[in-house]
Simulated assay, not measured.
Amino acid sequence: MKRPACHAAALCIGVAVLALAGCAADHVAGIPRAAHPNSSPVGAPAPACAFNLEDIEDRRETTELGQMGRTRIGGEGFTRWFADAMAAMPGHTHERTTRTVKVTVLKAYIQGLATLKSAHLVVRVQSAREGKASDARIYRGADASMNWANTEAEIQEAFDRALTDLTAQIATDLQASCKG
């Protein structure tokens, strides 16, 4: 019995997908790169609201960053990578200021479904001006993109884009609150 052409094509596609899955790593060692140089909001540069980064507290349930297929994403290097990005936000200074910011990392993970991946960073930010604390705000930086082969580079890029999204939101709100 002759197979229809569509079955043969589906079989070829299935074999190709399995071959690519066989190339995927079993473990990706965290996200060791330095913060992406474009981690600040895009647009006309405005004078940044100066602030001190009081603390970064990691309250995640696990240091692992997730699993995509058979690729486990470890959390090695996450703390330094995240702290470097927070310190690179517009307005951050080591000189004494009247504004302080405390960041609590609540979640950091990536998940995949077939050819899609989604990286998320969830933080709580508490700022204070002259010792008077404002309400804490929750921020989610996210990236949803194609997942080609669970490679370290594409996982890193997804986290970098989620971090860029996150720091842009925080920087925008800090700048707005500085005017008030």
Rank of each mutant, 00 (worst) to 15 (best):
M1L: 13
P4L: 07
A5Q: 10
C6A: 13
C12I: 06
G14D: 09
V15H: 00
A16T: 08
V17I: 13
A19H: 05
L20V: 13
A21L: 13
A21C: 10
C23L: 14
A24I: 01
H27C: 03
A29L: 09
G30T: 04
R33M: 03
A34R: 04
N38M: 10
N38L: 13
N38P: 00
N38D: 15
S40Y: 12
V42C: 01
V42K: 10
A48P: 08
A48T: 07
F51N: 03
F51V: 05
F51D: 08
L53A: 04
L53F: 09
E54H: 10
E54T: 10
D55S: 14
D55R: 15
I56M: 10
E61A: 15
T62F: 04
T62M: 02
T63W: 00
T63L: 14
T63I: 09
E64S: 15
G66M: 11
M68R: 02
M68D: 01
G69M: 04
R72N: 12
G74M: 02
G75P: 01
E76V: 05
G77V: 07
G77Y: 08
F78I: 05
T79R: 09
R80I: 08
F82T: 01
A83V: 07
A85F: 09
A87K: 15
A87D: 04
A87P: 01
A88C: 02
G91Q: 03
H92P: 00
H94S: 11
H94P: 01
E95F: 04
E95Q: 09
R96A: 15
R96V: 14
R99M: 14
T100D: 08
K102P: 00
T104W: 05
T104A: 11
V105C: 04
A108R: 04
Y109V: 04
Y109R: 07
Q111H: 09
L113T: 14
L113E: 13
T115M: 14
T115Q: 09
L116Q: 14
K117F: 03
K117V: 05
S118F: 09
H120I: 12
H120Y: 12
H120S: 11
L121C: 07
R124M: 11
Q126P: 00
Q126E: 14
E130Y: 05
E130G: 11
E130I: 03
E130R: 13
G131M: 08
G131L: 10
G131P: 08
S134T: 08
S134R: 15
S134Y: 12
S134P: 01
R137A: 12
R137S: 11
I138P: 00
Y139E: 04
Y139Q: 04
Y139V: 06
R140D: 15
R140K: 14
G141P: 03
A142L: 07
A142Q: 13
D143G: 00
D143K: 05
D143S: 12
M146A: 15
W148K: 08
W148P: 00
A149V: 13
A149Q: 09
E154P: 05
I155S: 01
I155E: 02
Q156V: 08
Q156R: 08
Q156T: 10
E157F: 06
A158N: 05
D160R: 04
A162R: 03
A162D: 03
L163E: 10
L163R: 03
T164E: 15
D165P: 09
T167G: 06
A168C: 06
A168E: 06
A168R: 06
A168Y: 01
Q169L: 10
Q169R: 12
Q169S: 06
I170P: 03
L174E: 04
A176D: 07
S177C: 01
K179H: 12
G180I: 10
